[in-house]
Design a protein around this nucleic acid. Structure first.
Length: 415
RNA sequence: GGGAGUGUAGCGAAGUCUGGCUAAACGCGACGGACUGUAACUCCGUUCCUUCGGGUUCGUAGGUUCGAAUCCUACCGCUCCCA
């Protein structure tokens, strides 16, 4: 299977400008492909992983992966279909660029990878050069027809955001020149911006210049929700923001309906292996073999081997182990990835304890959960709202382990 | 600039004409519990805060009234139509 066939099989292809042309180009020598990311936050989340997976496959298929960190475009803001974006401060942008660059480096390695910041060229561009060299090549009439822009004509769009597609087009052309980048990859909402780039390359370099675009379908789970959220929170790639344990559990808990789709999409396993896992999942869904493999593979890709074994150790402790008899060292070891809060060694009423530790948002809720039997303290179920927690009782007086519901854990650390 | 409408709990949406029975229907979501495969489905409970006496809510500020989400006035936001 070539690159495109593989993407099709994986359900990762929405549109491509010229399929055979692209395959020919890939076969005639090493070309580059790029994905751009604007530094809108200090970390990537699972939504970002979607185009990066495709770029990684391109790299694995013998191509060169180029990632743009959009220091300049991030300062402008990619128009959203609804409302104008809030501008980020330069300090915030620098901060975000740093975090994202580190993560991308981790995902792609050094080999056949180039990470660039579009501030390097867009930042140098003067207004008159911009208008003379590029502005002339863009037709307002065409720009207005792009979906995002069209949808904003009712509610309004600033000149700044309107210009974004030109900047992204310049990016593509610049990479085409500097790094032989002939392919831009993006989400399905990026189609307009990508074709702007291709048109620009053709305008400047002539129609025979090779430039392609490829978009990826919108990811949704089987219940139709946008992919990548857990309890309404984004799953971040930064282990400080989303612990590797939570990350692992996110994948482990995927439904039978979705697991094969995600195996195809988010792992580098081959056809045979995925088919085998699909079969296994159908024959013995309770074994969750496919989910486990998915969790292992993606966690390994994002956080490394060590994180996988840590997450599995912690999962085992939480779901099968006898938590009350673990040692303080085990706790420190295994529960590092769980939300934690500081406590004192003094005895404390359970309701106050839960609210102060932000396990519960109100005393009312805390009482309700205690009464319902939803709270377990260091392995011991507590149903009495007058219960006094004695932090010296377990784990050498160092920790109090709180479980709320079936699988949410919190760790109180004695200071 | 002229006209119409609208603003209710995390979201959606009743209630407003015909003031009290409304801490405010119902749906979704969320959180618990049972079941289970750390699942889905289903079922049950909770979903403003509380020292459980009560306290503070229906865009904001006033007013009428024994009593207002409901009536009156002003202001703010949003939507649509006309120019």
């Amino acid at each position: 299977m070539n690159f495109i066939e593989d993407l099709k099989w994986r359900g990762a292809l929405n549109q491509v400008t010229d399929e055979t042309g692209l395959i020919d180009a890939m076969q005639s020598g090493e070309i580059g492909a790029y994905v751009g990311t604007d530094p809108t936050a200090d970390s990537l989340h699972l939504g970002h992983l979607i185009p990066f997976m495709v770029l990684k496959r391109f790299q694995n298929a013998g191509g060169k992966a180029i990632i743009i960190i959009g220091g300049a475009t991030g300062a402008i803001g990619d128009p959203r279909p609804t409302t104008e974006r809030q501008l980020l401060s330069p300090e915030q942008l620098r901060e975000n660029e740093k975090g994202i660059t580190e993560q991308v480096t981790k995902l792609f390695g050094d080999d056949h990878t180039v990470i660039v910041n579009n501030n390097d060229w867009l930042g140098q561009l003067t207004l008159t050069d911009f208008l003379r060299d590029y502005g002339k090549l863009f037709s307002i009439n065409v720009m207005l027809k792009k979906d995002v822009v069209a949808s904003r004509l009712e509610t309004g769009i600033s000149f700044t955001e309107f210009t974004y597609q030109i900047l992204q087009g310049i990016d593509f052309h610049e990479l085409w020149r500097r790094h032989n980048v002939q392919l831009e990859i993006g989400g399905s909402d990026q189609w307009g911006n990508i074709t702007s780039g291709i048109d620009l390359i053709h305008s400047i370099e002539g129609n025979e210049a090779k430039a392609f675009g490829l978009t990826i379908p919108l990811m949704t789970d089987s219940s139709g929700k946008k992919f990548g959220k857990s309890e309404g929170n984004a799953i971040w790639l930064n282990p400080e923001k989303t612990s590797p344990y939570t990350f692992y559990q996110f994948w482990f808990n995927q439904s039978d309906e979705d697991v094969v789709k995600y195996l195809k999409y988010f792992t580098f396993l081959g056809v045979d292996e995925i088919n085998a896992l699909e079969q296994e999942s159908k024959n013995n869904p309770g074994g969750r073999v496919a989910q486990r493999r998915l969790a292992q593979e993606v966690t390994k890709f994002v956080h490394g081997e060590q994180a996988v074994s840590d997450a599995e150790k912690l999962s085992a402790a939480l779901f099968t182990g006898d938590v009350a008899n673990l040692s303080a060292t085990d706790i420190a070891d295994a529960f590092g990835g769980v939300p934690s809060f500081d406590i004192t060694a003094d005895k404390k009423n359970i309701v106050d304890f839960l609210v102060d530790g932000e396990v519960e948002k109100s005393k009312r809720q805390a009482r309700e959960d205690v009464t319902n039997g939803a709270i377990t303290i260091s392995g011991e179920k507590v149903t009495d709202v007058n219960f006094e927690i004695d932090p010296t009782k377990h784990y050498e007086g160092k920790f109090v382990l709180v479980r709320r519901g079936k699988k949410k854990y919190f760790l109180g650390t004695v200071k």
